[in-house]
Nucleic acid binder design. Structure first.
Lengths: 238, 238
DNA sequence: TTATTTATTATTGTTAACAATCTATGAATG
DNA sequence: CATTCATAGATTGTTAACAATAATAAATAA
């Protein structure tokens, strides 16, 4: 079968050529949306045709994705969507606690009233999305809440690292979890975090953030056992 | 002036062609050794000739260096050795405290006697190098000590992030500091860290690591003010 | 058949030529 | 004298063709 290049002619509609960043985002989103399951082979020419770009563009994108551990690259045998181990998942969450703990620690003594207000606005939006049943939007806003805390604390490196962790997390979850719509943060816990921030008690705020992250973490660890039965279970129950 | 390519003939001695990783390490080391000061333009053909590799190899290396923030890349105007701001330096150190704090927290309750022993061996080596006057080796061993703690704690993400920070630190220091041979960790502070680890008191161990990192940090912050006088000082004292 | 070897194809990796862009120089202009 | 503009050279960016490698299929021998 011959796959036609994604030119303007072949698709009938105008579409500006995608930039390298566009392609990167598309692939990233495809991973998050589970359209590219872990382990999927990412062939260069195929991707180039799909996105209507040159192979060189795809090559650069794959390198970048490999750098952020979203794809695995093996010499002479190309790239595939990464399959992070359960351990890597655990390590990622443990690191996240350290990072977000530090963020809260820095932020608590210096956050302004206006900062608290804008956070509460975000919580409202999140709650609205949830009540409307738009769980995808709710999840996105929930992630944005964490990102916003990182931004507010003003430490660019902590921000950078949290973004890295957030980027890698969906893959870790997908790899060891059957798709679960309940993966999002509970809104009330976010409220508790803002309350603690407002109270000015850094130690308490860090503790609450930690509990929040542990809740998510435990929910995942729990499931990961179920979907990874041992060989005997697989072979002897048929 | 014409620069001859670094071929076997032109240099008279045999040398296997450098791999991409080799080139990366060489440039990284040149930055650390202050042979490539911050801001230095990194021209592709020039580097390719110096290392005797194709321009494509240099291109990939520069991308990787840009990803780890050791070089800045601007579209159509190439790469130069990064000039991290004082703020980025501060952020890097603050993050380092969070990361190494987490490492110590994890490591303290689970470190074995053998682990303590191997750490003490490292301290001996470090001390020997220092007494011998080999301050370059001493510095390398001092860095290895921190890296070893990260490795021992078993969290690959924390390890990854600490390595990233360590990679970026020399550039931050060089950018805002006149070359100072006293930039290394004091050995006795490393000893105190091992003692605390051995005592099993995680809270105290974290506190000592924090103090250790703050000492380094303060020494740098202090100097950074001196070399960055404001405009008035520059213009009015002539 | 089953295993092993040998072509064939598919895929990734590299290169050199070309294109696009920026930079430096110097002349023309106000 | 400073500024603008045009030009040439240097530098980065892109591409298509080629090379090297791995994956697959076919052929052969046990």
């Amino acid at each position: 079968m011959i796959i036609e290049p994604n030119t303007e002619e072949s698709r009938g509609s105008f579409k500006p050529t995608m930039s390298e960043d566009d392609v990167l985002r598309q692939i990233e989103q495809a991973v998050i949306d589970h359209r590219l399951p872990p382990g999927t082979k990412l062939k260069e020419v195929q991707l180039a045709e799909v996105f209507g770009v040159k192979r060189g563009t795809i090559r650069k994108v794959l390198s970048r994705l490999a750098y952020s551990r979203l794809v695995d690259q093996l010499p002479n045998r190309g790239a595939s969507v990464a399959k992070p181990s359960v351990k890597e998942g655990r390590d990622l969450f443990a690191t996240r606690r350290a990072i977000e703990g530090a963020i809260i620690q820095i932020l608590t003594p210096e956050i302004e009233r206006s900062g608290i207000q804008s956070l509460r606005q975000m919580l409202d939006q999140e709650q609205n999305a949830y009540l409307k049943g738009d769980s995808k939007l709710a999840l996105a806003l929930s992630v944005d809440f964490h990102r916003q805390l990182a931004k507010m604390c003003g430490n660019s490196v902590l921000q950078e690292y949290l973004n890295d962790i957030i980027r890698r997390t969906p893959l870790v979850i997908l790899t060891h979890l059957s798709a679960d719509p309940q993966n999002r943060c509970r809104n009330q816990e976010h409220e508790a975090i803002v309350d603690a921030l407002e109270s000015g008690d850094a130690k308490r705020a860090v503790e609450i953030m930690n509990q929040h992250l542990l809740h998510i973490e435990n929910r995942i660890e729990h499931k990961s056992e179920e979907v990874q039965p041992d060989l005997a279970t697989i072979l002897l129950t048929g």
